[in-house]
């Protein structure tokens, strides 16, 4: 059943080492605050291409990036959180979204196709066909034997080629961690309208370790650290998209608000002062990224 506390480890924020808990929070803040600036830039007309926001789901990439550093990454269209958490340059992402030659793909590709091949990050760009990244990740792992991360949505999990890629990875025992960001939606169609089965059960039947859990970052961190040693493995993580499928609007409050839960957990763990300092620093640096005068100059508006 879908629930915010599904398989969540209690007091996770206090169990993980303090520096790790705070680093995860820093990365959560980076995505959330970057996208706050982006939402405003869209409303102000500085970004006109379609945007796929990670807000609401940002704890997943933040926790994964700390637990599983340095994999070859194949993400799906909703990829700002993955890019930023793994260390992608926010300025280059902003420029990509503005269609500038200084963007991650020279401004040619946009929000759903972000790549990063610098600063020790190996993230391959998506092209917009949902689930295409999963067989590519499996083939990459087959050929390179490198630790590979395939991140996709609950809709993508239904694609023929995604399912058969899971089977192939299981057969060949490939070093792929599959992470399904299960926000219960394919655009606006809920999982229950589309299928009766769970991707975790399918992965299990293929013979790989698979878990259903909620998007509590401390739980994701602790479990991903274990599962990445046993790849191929799959995590189906229940989460909530805060904004529209594409675009910056909202359809009322999401089922749960992980960002607030995370803050409360940090308070409970006695880390609130340090967390606030981190959030403040992120806010300051993201304000520079989205500074109005600069946007005006860059966009010529």
């Amino acid at each position: 059943m879908r629930a915010p506390d599904l398989a969540v480890i209690e007091n996770g924020a206090a169990i993980v080492p303090e520096d790790i808990a705070l680093e995860i929070y820093r990365r959560i803040c980076r995505t959330r605050i970057f996208e706050e600036g982006l939402i405003k830039a869209v409303k102000d007309g500085f970004v006109t291409s379609p945007v796929y926001l990670s807000s609401g789901q940002e704890s997943i990439a933040a926790a994964l990036s700390v637990a599983v550093p340095g994999p070859v990454i194949f993400a799906q269209h909703r990829c700002h959180g993955v890019y930023l958490s793994y260390g992608g340059d926010p300025v280059k992402l902003r420029d990509e979204l503005m269609g500038l030659p200084t963007g991650t793909s020279g401004g040619r590709a946009g929000s759903n196709c972000v790549q990063c091949h610098e600063n020790g990050v190996a993230m391959h760009g998506h092209h917009g066909l949902i689930g295409e990244n999963v067989p590519l990740a499996v083939g990459y792992a087959l050929a390179s034997k490198k630790s590979t991360l395939a991140i996709f949505g609950d809709g993508a999990a239904e694609e023929d080629y995604v399912l058969s890629s899971l089977g192939f990875a299981a057969t060949h025992r490939l070093p792929v961690l599959f992470v399904c960001e299960d926000n219960n939606l394919s655009i606006l169609t809920a999982v229950e309208t589309r299928r009766s089965w769970k991707v975790s059960k399918v992965a299990d039947a293929f013979g790989m370790e698979a878990e259903d859990l909620s998007d509590d970052p401390w739980t994701i961190y602790l479990k991903a650290k274990e599962l990445v040693k046993k790849t191929p493995a799959l995590m189906n993580i229940h989460t909530c998209r805060a904004n529209w499928h594409v675009g910056v609007g909202t359809d009322g409050p999401a089922e749960w608000d992980r960002f607030s839960d995370v803050r409360n957990a940090l308070k409970g763990a006695g880390l609130w002062d340090k967390a606030q300092a981190i959030e403040g620093a992120e806010r300051l640096s993201m304000e520079k990224v989205w500074e109005q005068g600069q946007l005006r100059r860059l966009s010529g508006k």
Partner: peptide, 29 residues
């Protein structure tokens, strides 16, 4: 088709009629 009823009935070109099959996102199958 995919996302027929929840996403604007294909630009309002599909009526709310019987025998509409919501396909999972499985483009080959």
């Amino acid at each position: 088709g995919e996302s027929i009823s929840a996403v604007g009935w294909v630009n309002n070109t599909v009526p709310d009629a019987p025998n509409i099959v919501e396909l999972p996102m499985t483009d080959v199958a």
